[in-house]
Design a protein around this nucleic acid. Structure first.
Lengths: 141, 141
DNA sequence: AGTGTAAATGAGGACGGTTTTCATTTATAT
DNA sequence: ATATAAATGAAAACCGTCCTCATTTACACT
């Protein structure tokens, strides 16, 4: 049994062709961050006839099962990434849309402190730094 | 000439009734953070017959003119707030949708440092802390 | 292996927030 | 006053996402 089949079983999901294929796409993609549309197109390219609605459903289930996490990029569509258990925040290039990840314990700590100060029971947070990546600066277009 | 008229002129916008009324709503509202729909409803309550499309247009123009800023809440609709020149981040209650503001210079600084480390020229950032506010915890519903 | 049953899928339409279109109205410069 | 460019209203278009429902599929149990 492949590793993907096991992952799905462990997540309590029936092993179906759409789920296997979506998981493969996410694992094999050179881009770690993909929108539902990206996954759909990648599936088409590999010759799989899987409906867009199914892609959305599967990604949402994967999110619920903890296999992927969903990022809500500023003002736009959702982007998914394979969950690796390690929390991190994101840095986005506003020109090429490349996404980098980072973790900063100082920021994490300050956030907890602020929530506590305000009397909030923090459930989660989202931090995005927007900017122009090194490569795009070099191309300065 | 009212202060609102001057604000609009200064922003390079023609002084029209819809723009004046939207600005008044934002200034007089007890809620500092309002969606386009909120503003639209508030206008109806004051007896102004201004179309929702116009509200969206006006808010977008105000954003471009620096009169308001737009928050992109996780997964949902946009929320607008009067711009007061002072940068701040937000803390949102996931139960009552109340929004609080905060500024933390340590976090600001760490963000700049992270962008620099990664070779990014930072243009902006967005930080939202989600949680349950004190009041909602007390009601524990 | 065969089969019943609940779950998953595909196709297309619905949906909600936001934006566009285009004909009509309005603010401002002259 | 009037010309003209800009702003507005109403309705339709849009876009990402989700739902509906008929059909297919995976899995549990003979």
């Amino acid at each position: 049994m492949s590793a993907e089949r096991q992952d799905l079983r462990k997540a309590g999901l029936k092993v179906t062709l759409p789920r296997l294929k979506v998981l493969e796409i996410l694992e094999d993609a050179e881009l770690r961050h993909m929108s539902a549309e990206d996954v759909y197109k990648a599936l088409l390219e590999t010759g799989e006839e899987i409906g867009l609605a199914t892609v959305y459903r599967v990604l949402t289930q994967f999110e619920g099962a903890g296999l992927v996490s969903r990022l809500s990029i500023d003002g736009g569509h959702a982007v998914f990434e394979l969950e690796d258990g390690a929390h991190h925040d994101h840095l986005l290039c506003v020109k090429c849309n490349q996404i980098e990840e980072f973790v900063d314990e100082v920021i994490e700590q300050r956030q907890r402190a602020i929530a506590a100060e305000k009397g909030f029971e923090m459930t989660e947070h989202s931090l995005y730094i927007y900017g122009i990546c090194k490569r795009c600066q070099a191309e300065n277009n």
